[in-house]
Each structure stands twice: as C-alpha cells, then as structure tokens.
Amino acid sequence: MKLGFSWRVLVFIAPALLIYATFSALPLLDTLRLGLYSADDTGLRTFTGLANYNTILNDPQWSASFWNAMGNNLKFFAIHMLVQNPVGLLLAALLSLRNVRFAATYRTIFFLPTLLSVVIIGFVWQLILSPLWGVSERLLTLVGLGDWFAPWLGLESSALITVSLMSVWQYIGVPMMLIYAALIAIPEDIIEAAVVEGASPWRIFWQIRLPLILPTLGLVTILTFVANFNAFDLIYTVKGAVAGPNYSTDILGTLFYRTFFGYQSQVASPTMGAAVATIMFLVILVGVAVYFLAVQRKLQRFAM
C-alpha cells in the first residue's frame, strides 16, 4: 500500500518537477556554471574559476558600475519599504474597518494598477511628468505648488526616487491585499473582548491587530525584497538599458542586461553577465536566509 501510494504521488508531481527542472533549476545551474568561464574574442570559453567575480568586485572599470547598481538597488528597496508597505498597511487597516462604504470598490481601484502592463505604466507616467506636454506642472500650479515642479525623470538627484514612486504606485495593491486578508482573518471574539474592556480603536490596532499580523508583514517584506532585487522592466521601460541620466537609475537588473546582451558601445559578454546574475541570486538568497533564520524564528517564538 505504501509503495503504491508513493508511485501515485510521484506520477502526480512528476510533471511539475519536470517543468520546474527544465525552466528553473537547470537554467540556474547553467548560469552558475557559465559564470566560472571566460571567453576570448573568438568565443572560445575557458575555465577561470572566480576570476569574473574578482573583476566585477575589484576591477575599477567594472566595480564602479556594480557598486553603483547595488547602491541604487538598495535605495529602490528602501523606498518601497518606507512608502509602499506602510501605506499598504494603512489602506488595509482602513478598509478592514466595519461599515466602510464602497470598501470593495476602493480595493479594486487600489489593486487595479497591479494588473496593468509595465509598459503602459511607464509610458503614462512619462506623459504625466513630461515638462513639455505633461499635466503635472499644471496640476501643481492649480494648488499653488507650481514652483515645486521639475523634470524629475531627467535629474540625477531625483530620477531614481521618481521611478521608485512609480513602482510603488503600481504595486501598492499587493501588500494592501495581503495585509487586508490577514486583518479580516483575526477572530472577532478577540476584538469584541478588547472593546468590552474599553480599549480604543487605536490601542486595539497597535496592541492586538498589529502583533497578530506580524507574520504577514514579514512575508510582505521578503516579497518586496525579492521583487526589488529582481526588478528590471519598469526602469528599462522608462529610462532604457542605460538607466540614465548618467546611470543614476541603474540597478542590478539593468546592469545584467547590458553585460549579458550588450548595449551600444558595451560588448556583450555572456560569461560576465552570468557572473552578475549569480551575484544577484546570492544577494537574494542571503536576504531570504536571514529572514527565515532570524526574523521568522522570532515571529514564531512571539506567536507561541
């Protein structure tokens, strides 16, 4: 019986394992392998060990671009953590309150941008923020803030922040819905008991609701981390592969694209591109490992 059950389970999971191995595991392993090789002008590859990684991290020609992209990626992630997730928490808390009129409509409106194409999002926001034909300057002038307007996407000091906020606007519905689902799953008996004890809504949120959804907040954090360090499409759509101005919006995803496929004067190097992709994988792996080994354990002890 046990043997037959094992074979039946294998039959059902075999297609999923085959698809995962073909499209995820094997390409990942091949990328890790390719990063250990170097190619000459003829395309002949030779095993060089960690030479590509030493070049990326220490060679002045490569390290400046890599550390610039890494720093921008950290800023990109920080903006999402400081803006997207707190606002998502606030929206979820408001929409989970009783007797909120049109709550379903609001949830749909906030989540709708997530379903739109990144190309559409980038194009629309470029039109809105354009100094030539955009409407943002006129709207700011109508509310008395016309002096604040600037070509934010064209300035090195503000381009990354602007693109990050565009990404926040598009994906804020994801943390909102995850947190909202966690809030409405809290047993009503707990909330009613706190109300009977005379607790205010503010105290109920901070001392009851928020601690109970900490695992969900941790999940939102790690999903934000993974998504941000895999980001590429929005910046490529808005600023191109060069990630201008002057690489001020360059992140690991765009650096990998230019390195692997080549762009303008930069010659394509699949082996160096594989090394960049491997570093991206290791950064994400370390971040996820830290979360599960440190944060998740503390949350489990807190729940017990």
Rank of each mutant, 00 (worst) to 15 (best):
K75P: 05
I56W: 00
Q61W: 10
P60N: 09
N68P: 08
N85G: 00
V83S: 01
R101F: 09
L112I: 10
A92G: 10
P86M: 03
N73L: 02
N58S: 11
A39E: 14
T105W: 10
G49S: 07
R101L: 08
G49V: 07
N72S: 05
L44W: 03
M70D: 02
M70C: 11
F66S: 03
H80E: 11
L89D: 01
L82S: 10
W62S: 12
L50W: 15
T46N: 13
S117C: 00
L91N: 06
L44A: 13
F76T: 09
N73G: 15
A69R: 07
N54E: 14
L50V: 15
A104H: 09
K75F: 13
I56D: 01
I120Q: 01
M81R: 03
F77R: 10
G43A: 08
S96N: 13
T46C: 10
R101D: 00
F66C: 06
L94D: 07
S63H: 00
A39V: 13
S65A: 13
I120Y: 02
L94M: 15
V124A: 11
S65Y: 14
F111P: 07
P60W: 08
Y53P: 14
R45A: 03
L50A: 13
D40R: 13
I109P: 12
T48Q: 06
N68Y: 11
L50H: 07
F111W: 09
P86C: 02
L95A: 06
S65N: 13
G88M: 05
Y53Q: 15
I56E: 01
I121T: 10
N72A: 05
F77M: 15
L116V: 14
T48C: 06
M70G: 03
L115E: 03
L94E: 07
L82W: 05
R101N: 03
N85C: 00
L94C: 12
G88T: 04
T114F: 08
K75N: 10
L112C: 09
L116Q: 07
I109S: 06
G49L: 07
M70Q: 08
D40W: 10
L74E: 01
L90F: 02
I109K: 03
W125Y: 11
F110V: 09
N52R: 02
D59A: 15
L94N: 06
I109W: 04
F110T: 02
R101M: 03
G88R: 03
W125R: 00
H80N: 15
G71T: 14
V118H: 00
V119C: 01
N99T: 09
Q84E: 10
L74A: 10
N54V: 13
A69E: 07
L50C: 08
D59W: 09
T114G: 01
G43P: 04
A39T: 14
A51H: 05
I79L: 15
T55N: 09
